[in-house]
């Protein structure tokens, strides 16, 4: 990612970012509310109002100058191997949990092996096992988030983008969720987790990037001391 800027309308949210994600890496992205974490993720999948600079994914140009058609290229980008678990719950409330998970397996290969993939995800999120046939709209907040993240993991993507997995969840549940996320074997896939709580990620990721006011601060390092992650603001 080189010299990337983006924003919505007249707002410029991201200011000339440069960074690389290596295969198999797990990166935490830390920053306060409104400092551009979500926008960065949206920029990668082409959901911002406009963007500038170049984003390269596996040798292929997926970014570039764009100023209209929000989200028009998103499916193409997503299908080229980027899985995204968006902020909040973008699940399909009328479908069952099983169908929700299956909808994440959008590539031909992933669709054929969706049973095995689903079982692998149920290993990570055991609470979903009993709710497979249930409509996703009736789940609790934590379970919805599991479905949302699980759906992203169903794809055999090269890059997983997870936006605010802890948002709106009780501290215990969010710790469990992040732990699970960091335990999953990604193969050569990389993962980017955006999060407000530094302590929640520290020690669990390979690298932690700080984000402030739309600019990136390389390698924040580990959190000091043994303190539990803060509750949501």
């Amino acid at each position: 990612m080189r010299e990337v800027s983006s924003g919505y309308g007249t707002m410029r949210v991201i200011h000339g970012l440069n960074f690389t994600i290596d295969p198999g890496e797990r990166i935490g992205l830390v920053g306060l509310n409104g400092h551009g974490k979500t926008t960065l993720i949206s920029t990668i999948v082409g959901m911002t109002g406009w963007q500038d600079g170049s984003i390269e994914f596996m040798g292929q140009q997926i970014g570039g100058r764009r100023s209209h058609g929000v989200g028009r290229n998103t499916p193409k980008i997503v299908r080229s191997g980027i899985a995204i678990a968006p902020q909040g719950d973008a699940i399909f409330p009328g479908l069952t949990v099983e169908e929700n998970l299956a909808s994440g397996a959008y590539t031909e290969g992933a669709w054929k092996t969706r049973k095995q993939r689903r079982d692998a995800i149920l290993e990570v999120f055991p609470p979903l096992r009993t709710r497979l046939k249930q409509s996703a709209g009736t789940l609790s907040g934590g379970e919805r988030r599991m479905v949302s993240v699980g759906r992203a993991l169903m794809a055999d993507a090269k890059l997983y983008l997870v936006d605010e997995p802890s948002l709106g969840l009780a501290p215990k549940i969010s710790i469990g969720l992040v732990d699970a996320l960091c335990k999953i074997d990604l193969g050569d896939g990389a993962m980017l987790i955006a999060e407000q709580n530094l302590p929640l990620l520290s020690g669990r990721c390979d690298r932690i990037l700080g984000m402030h006011a739309g600019e990136l601060k390389e390698d924040v390092g580990e959190a000091f001391g043994d303190i539990p992650p803060a509750a949501e603001m």
Partner: peptide, 8 residues
Amino acid sequence: LGANMVGV
């Protein structure tokens, strides 16, 4: 919107 994000 969610569908857009899972490649539909």
